[in-house]
Design a protein around this nucleic acid. Sequence first.
DNA 1: AAATACCCTTAAGATATCTTAAGGGTTCAG
DNA 2: CTGAACCCTTAAGATATCTTAAGGGTATTT
Lengths: 199, 199
Amino acid sequence: MHEGIKNKELLLANISSAFSLTDKEIEELISLFAERKIKRRGFILHQGDVCRHFTFVISGCLKMYAIDPSGKEFNLEFAAENEWISDLNSFYAEKPTTVYIEAMEPSVILQIARPDLIHLYSNYPKFNSTFRIIIERKYMELQNRVLQNISATAEERYSNFLHQFPTLASRLPNTQIASYLGITSEFLSKIRKDLAHKR
Amino acid sequence: MHEGIKNKELLLANISSAFSLTDKEIEELISLFAERKIKRRGFILHQGDVCRHFTFVISGCLKMYAIDPSGKEFNLEFAAENEWISDLNSFYAEKPTTVYIEAMEPSVILQIARPDLIHLYSNYPKFNSTFRIIIERKYMELQNRVLQNISATAEERYSNFLHQFPTLASRLPNTQIASYLGITSEFLSKIRKDLAHKR
DNA sequence: AAATACCCTTAAGATATCTTAAGGGTTCAG
DNA sequence: CTGAACCCTTAAGATATCTTAAGGGTATTT
């Protein structure tokens, strides 16, 4: 399909930003990713399931979140176009996940299943580095977020979010951003008013 | 040296918990790690330096922290015996770090330099998975910590810390634990009193 | 096009957490 | 051995953040 090929080029561009790949590697990589369209509010991972895929977002936006005993949702991660998302713990250990991954917009994704990724790792060693680097980037992002959480006020965290994810900031409902920042949406509303007055 | 060999066995045990290694891999791995003793308050990484080593802790305990403009320290990570520590961002990008890594106790560590690790990656592909898994574990730990930070009260976070790191909890000054949890040491003191009364 | 669910804002009162200050205990360095 | 530095605790007042409640706007579904 014409569109399907274009989508896989996005994947290639993402992966080969750090590594150049041979034709054979490209062919194999592309053949192992399957495209899926997800409706708004559709789930690609549900608490209790085993996370069986590593997911790359072509378009749209997904969120990964946990639900506490009282039913509140806490957003752990957003993934929009050109980003990766997966519950690594469940994926590698093949054990039931404690989180949800849900589409916030109609989305198109590319997924690779665990056995196929392992096949890539063993037959094309370069992909070990590729995926190691993807995870390292996400690790640094998380570490930075932890630092924010323990050192910055809610207003500072929100300002940083606006700078770091300007596109997300204008696409997502503030309720979702509040959940990501660890504050209530009412308090975010107050922060936004305060910031507006500072101009 | 007798003790040096024993220390490298700890490293081997840590790495081969997920993978079995050949004699050749073991020999090469061991030859590339160098042992260092660090005094209490000694630094192995200072803001502005490039992080040139991946570090495994044999004994003692290190902390990684950032300092904000007002001079306050925020603990990002502790690493005691049998744990890994490094500023991945500085290490892989070879750019100056924004953090410090300092020994809180007299410590013995094993370090591998970046070129040697890259040599391992290219000549013994298995080590790609090995180190990918080390990072994945740390990633999940961070993700769990973010969830705590955005969803739990300070008292809950402290209780969790006690359960998750019982050894650290009794070894570290509470000021250091407070900084890790993102609260003041005075407030931690109050939390400890409240918890004691709940018994 | 109506009905429903979702979203944003405001504000008042409640709670969690910080700041400052002070005192006493313990460890470390000279 | 001794002063200095660090650590822990307590408490009072200040500030940040949450909870609840309510109203009006916007998007989604029927």
